[in-house]
Design a protein around this nucleic acid. Structure first.
Lengths: 204, 204
DNA sequence: CGTATGCTCAAACGATCGTTTGATTCCCTG
DNA sequence: CAGGGAATCAAACGATCGTTTGAGCATACG
């Protein structure tokens, strides 16, 4: 099937699918390696352990996602004419671009699971490797919403994060009407999410 | 009968804690029964299986939660002077009352896990026992937001649901300042969530 | 050609899982 | 007080888990 791809890539792709469908505990290495068409021992050979494989699944997607997010943010951050919607667009658009890129949509489901799991090891891994992204966006939100107290801002960002994670984890299931192109459907979705988040962040 | 109810209750309480901490798959019946101080076989004796136990954990909380939500909704639904904030209060207040009631706060974490898991069996169970509540609230939202299309309304309700689930699942972790009573802290939290949800639902 | 190296393979490891069993204890009722 | 169903118990069941092993295969280099 995908015999052209490397063994590591096939494992990562199959892991992303099964982790999204059955969770990290629910997906066994035997199901996983069978779906990838590789030997059972290949996971421990190439990744060391199942936990390391989980981290690699995150790393592969988050590296590109955060690069795109920071690139988009750097184009609007600190500039006087920048609006709240611009910053939110920089945060949301790369995630939805990932969702529409082949199997990447499954990754948002995996990310939503990681949020629901309150596993300390996984949270620490995510915080260490990608906390700086949220910090940069938070700083820009604080600049654009100077009337909000720090506590109030954190509250609203947390609520927006929950809404966006919830929505984007189910994005693959939202059927677009026939006659509407993929890109225009995505643009509509981005507009929905950006307006909702802007209203939730900036309401009096 | 009384001693069996005690055993059942202790199992349910321990299950709620461990399901919130480690997930449905992650929490084993041996950890669970040890924490409850009962024999391993007690789960299968009283509930039939682990899956039935999971359903009972949901049923115990959702029965009272839904009753309180519908009771609060019936006091404001359909009346001309009712505001969007009133309906949201009827939805949010019972959930936070549950959260501050002893170990009930853990249940919101369990509920957040159930949302993240896309398990069909669990979703069907929740839909059967929970669906009519959301339908009644949705009807009232539609009445108060007549300018929104059906599709747009569903979008916003889904986003609000994600935000509230995310926030309330972490409610137990939010430290209230010293000198602030439990009830006033809860009132502040309710006010935060209601205003955020109202802004997200009703923005132009 | 010979051999070293990276990779794949079937097989087995010990641990833990949910569930079942059969004996034993408890408690209510006649 | 005696009998019987409900509840609890230790123990074991088969299945499945993540991981390890050591032999076998491939390709590249001296």
């Amino acid at each position: 099937m995908n015999s052209s791809a490397s063994t590591k890539e096939r494992i990562l792709t199959a892991a992303e699918l099964l982790f999204a469908q059955r969770g990290f505990d629910g997906a066994s290495l035997r199901q996983l390696t069978a779906a990838a068409g590789v030997n059972l021992a290949a996971v421990n050979y190439h990744f060391g352990s199942k936990d390391k494989l989980v981290e690699e699944v995150f790393r592969r997607r988050l590296d590109t996602l955060n690069t795109h997010r920071l690139a988009a943010l750097s184009e609007v951050a600190g500039q006087p004419q920048t609006t709240l919607e611009d910053v939110l667009d920089a945060f949301i658009r790369p995630a939805l671009a990932l969702s529409s890129d082949g199997s990447g949509s499954l990754f948002m489901r995996v990310l939503a699971r990681a949020f629901a799991e309150h596993d300390d090891t996984l949270r620490q891994f995510l915080s260490e490797n990608y906390g700086h992204v949220m910090r940069q966006f938070t700083a820009e939100f604080a600049r654009l919403l100077p009337k909000l107290s720090r506590e109030e801002l954190y509250w609203r960002i947390d609520l927006v994060t929950g809404a966006l994670t919830h929505a984007m984890s189910g994005f693959g299931m939202i059927q677009r009407k026939s006659g509407v192109s993929e890109s225009s459907h995505r643009e509509q979705t981005i507009a929905h999410l950006v307006r909702f988040a802007a209203a939730g962040l900036s309401h009096p």
